[in-house]
């Protein structure tokens, strides 16, 4: 699916990165613990998280992830938006909770990867 599909499925509001919506994504992970993302993630392109600070964007950047979805309507701050725009990472926020958001994406074909 594309990042645009992720947005539609999660009823998400785009925060930044509208120019990358047609990027294809196949794998995702959901975590509030960036240490775990850095330890266990491999080739996942979408990060779902309830954590809001600049290290979320930096972690995604280090892992070559292309899209971050903030669950439970969490609002990224201006520093995060600026950093994500600079690194070409899409930010969006969904009112859904983590479990539901992950479940919907899985149901529609995204997988957890290796």
């Amino acid at each position: 699916m594309t990042i645009a599909d992720v947005r539609t499925i999660l009823q998400a509001e785009l925060v930044t990165g509208g120019e990358h919506l047609e990027t294809e994504v196949h794998n995702a992970c959901g975590s509030d613990m960036m240490s775990d993302v850095l330890a266990f993630v491999k080739d996942q392109s979408v990060l779902l998280t309830g954590l809001v600070n600049t290290q979320v964007v930096r972690t995604a950047d280090m892992m070559d992830m292309v899209c971050i979805v903030f669950v439970r309507g969490k609002e990224p701050g201006p520093e995060m938006v600026e950093l994500a725009a600079d690194r070409g990472i899409v930010l969006m926020k969904t009112p859904l909770r983590m479990f539901t958001a992950c479940g919907l994406l899985y149901e529609n074909g995204l997988r957890g990867g290796n």
Binding site: M34, S35, D36, L38, A39, Q55
Partner: peptide, 15 residues
């Protein structure tokens, strides 16, 4: 609460 401190830092660096 900032998403770190899970005791994965040094093991990750080694990995």
């Amino acid at each position: 609460s900032l998403g770190f401190g899970a005791g994965m830092g040094l093991p990750n660096i080694k990995k």
